[in-house]
């Protein structure tokens, strides 16, 4: 890299890092203010807003609902995405191009379209008002992430290993559970973690599928920031930041974040 390029790239990357981190840092800072409003320079340090949110039933319940939705999402997407990922990476499939295009529909259909469509479909089925349709909906719209995570893991498994297991007397079921599945486990974990986080954070589809009795946390925050911005919301947002940070640490320990830099 030449000098000009180094300097130019460093400036741009620094700008990008500041831009990426600024909202997070500001929310963290705002959550520990001792004042009643968020201002700069900030008032003293206190954890009073964390105390306050523990007592707020609406926020606590909204958080629990979001976690439930995320768990349902993983329960649906894990089997569906794992099997599909293995199928796409390990087998020759007739009409594969078409199936790929079809399985990418959750990404190609605009989120608002998917959300409205699911809202109408679940409405017709009379199941709106419960949490599980939201879980299924978030699984549906993010499924390609799960398939992608598993298929990239499965593609790196040497097919000879499966043949070796077979020729040593393992049946197809045993081969699947002892050779194929362990090999794709890192992908399954990565994918599930992604699905959990994306579902926990999902805002638009949640907004379309909830009613006032079952708002999820992102919707609750959205409704609140449209009125007055108070520091208790910052404290709630820190919950999301903490979850995100733990997910990153788990992901880094399990597969290493660098896996996302690998070329296919």
């Amino acid at each position: 890299m030449g000098r000009t390029q180094t300097v130019l790239f460093r400036v741009m990357v620094t700008f990008a890092v500041v831009m990426l981190s600024a909202p997070t840092l500001v929310v963290l800072g705002a959550s520990v203010t001792s004042g009643n409003i968020i201002q700069f320079p900030p008032d003293g340090f206190s954890l009073r807003w964390y105390n306050a949110i523990v007592g707020e039933q609406t926020l606590r319940e909204a958080f629990i609902r979001s976690v439930q939705v995320a768990i349902i999402c993983v329960l649906v997407s894990l089997p569906a995405g794992t099997l599909a990922g293995i199928a796409l990476a390990r087998y020759r499939i007739r009409g594969e191009k078409l199936i790929q295009v079809y399985l990418l529909l959750p990404f190609t259909i605009p989120l608002i379209g998917s959300g409205i469509g699911l809202m109408l479909a679940f409405g017709q089925a009379g199941v709106l008002g419960s949490l599980w349709p939201i879980g299924i909906a978030t699984a549906t719209i993010n499924l390609p992430f799960m398939i992608w995570a598993v298929s990239s893991s499965a593609a790196s498994l040497d097919p000879d290993l499966e043949l070796a297991a077979m020729s040593c007397g393992a049946g197809p079921v045993q081969t699947f559970f002892s050779v194929t599945l362990p090999a794709v486990t890192p992908g399954v974990i990565t994918g599930s973690l992604l699905m959990f986080i994306l579902s926990l954070n999902e805002f638009l589809v949640s907004l379309l599928l909830v009613d006032a009795r079952i708002v999820t946390l992102p919707v609750q925050i959205y409704n609140s920031i449209r009125s007055i911005i108070t520091p208790d919301l910052a404290a709630v947002s820190v919950v999301f930041i903490a979850v995100a940070l733990s997910a990153i640490i788990v992901l880094d320990r399990l597969v290493g974040l660098e896996v996302f830099l690998k070329s296919k």
């Binding site: 990426l20 500001v26 954070n201 920031i225 911005i229």
Partner: peptide, 18 residues
């Protein structure tokens, strides 16, 4: 990854504060 995992609403909230 941090902003990617935090979600749009919380990030927009941060921008509102800024």
């Amino acid at each position: 990854f941090l902003p990617f995992f935090i979600g749009q609403v919380v990030r927009a909230y941060g921008w509102l504060i800024i």
